[in-house]
Each structure stands twice: as C-alpha cells, then as structure tokens.
Design a protein around this nucleic acid. Structure first.
Lengths: 110, 110
DNA sequence: TAGGTGTACCTAGACGGTCGATGTATTTGG
DNA sequence: CCAAATACATCGACCGTCTAGGTACACCTA
C-alpha cells in the first residue's frame, strides 16, 4: 500500500470514525485498521497531526479524560465537522468515479 | 476537487492513457480530462515532472517527433510500465475498497 | 522485581508530489 | 494582427505522511 494514496482521505476516515461516537486517537487507529481489514495502519506521525489539524479547524473538539487509570484525549465531531465530512465523502465518490472513468471501467461519472 | 487526492493516482492514470498507444503530454492531459468528464485537469507542473519520473524509471520510453510542424515528445509504455500499471491498478482497487470499508459502505474488502 | 508488551500521547525533521507562476516557441482563427 | 490554443519545461512554495525518537503507565510472566 503506497501511503501516498492516503493523502486527502485520512482526515475523512478519521471524521467518519469519530462520527460513531466520542473516541480517542489510539482507538481510532484500531477502528480504521479493523474496518479496512488491516489494510490501513495509521501511523502516529500522521494520525496525531491530523487530529490536531481537525481540532484546530473546529471540525473536532477535544477533551482529556481519565479511564482505567489512563490519560486519554477524547474527540467528538462538531456540527462543522459533520458538514465537512459530508463534503469530503461526496468529493471522494466523485474522485473515485473519475478514476474509474480514466481506467475505462464501469461506474465512471454519469 | 482537492488536488491532494491525485497523489499516487496521477502516474497510474498517465500509464493507463499511454497504454492505448504512443502519445504526448498535452494529449494525455486532454484525454484524462475527457475520460474524467472534465474532473481532472492535470496541471503542467504535475504532469511533466510525472512523465519525467516515469521515463527515468523506464516505465515509459520517450522520443521526439515532428507532426503538424509541431515538436512533440511521444511516450510509449514499456514492458516494465505495463507491469507497474497492473500493480498500481490492483493497489488502487484495494485502497478504494478499504476506504469503502471504513466509510461503512457496500463494496468493502471481502 | 525485572523486563517485555500493549496502551496512549506527542513532536521534529525528512521526503516527495502537486501547485502556481513563469518562460519559450509555434500554429490557428477571428 | 493579435489572442488563444498548442506544446514543452522548470522553480520554489506548500503540505501531508513517514521514520524515528521521546515520555509514561498498566499488565503479565519469569
């Protein structure tokens, strides 16, 4: 898996996972790995900066919580985040359809 | 269209177009725009460096030709290029399926 | 109790691809 | 005659991912 493919979709996937309910970095990476059948193993050097970007842009809100004697930073989606996610998903589908079109496959743009 | 999504797929699309027969930079960008219904407008600052990379890696071979009184650099796919393209396409399909899985859509990884 | 593994966060710098801007030159169409 | 299209190329800016490193605590086993 060329990690360059992740560029632009990593944030979308993070937003999607957080949409399911408040969660934290480590759990997000596990969930993404799970849902992708182990294909995506988000690296800490990509994941944490992405979370910070999303928080800075107010697409996620963050708060520290203690659970199981562990210090965790929980993220939850904001209204702006939900909106941005919807836009990203649409863009992604359009993009994927465009690639299909160039590759001469069925499922290209209408 | 966030152009960052193109990272990693631009070369694949170029290889695919050249597979149809020897062609040149300007025509490639037209063809990609065509096949993607205008969604992808490859910029010169991305396209030409990509062609040079692919040629340097021997995935494409290049030769100058004169046609219509115009100076054009024609590219054709090499055996290694065809092989690389097949690999990239498989990787792309896997990647797209992985994203579908994370987004909770049908068509995820088996 | 020492050490390894898993959990959990973070950052710095390297790397590389896409972009906008800019440059050159010719042909075509109004 | 001049604007637009054709056709190639390069440069530096920008930005996201990665590797590698760091901190800290919980848990299990020898």
């Amino acid at each position: 898996m060329d990690s360059r493919l992740l560029t632009g979709t990593l944030e979308m996937m993070v937003l999607e996972v957080v949409t399911a309910g408040p969660t934290y970095g480590y759990a997000i990476s596990q969930e993404v790995a799970d849902r992708s059948k182990g294909l995506f193993e988000l690296k800490e050097g990509s994941l944490y900066p992405a979370l910070h970007r999303l928080a800075r842009r107010k697409l996620l809100s963050a708060s520290w919580k203690d659970a199981d004697g562990r210090r965790r930073k929980y993220y939850r989606i904001t209204a702006a985040g939900a909106k941005a996610l919807a836009a990203r998903k649409q863009e992604w589908h359009q993009f994927a359809a465009g690639v299909s079109g160039v590759l001469g496959e069925a499922g290209g743009l209408a």
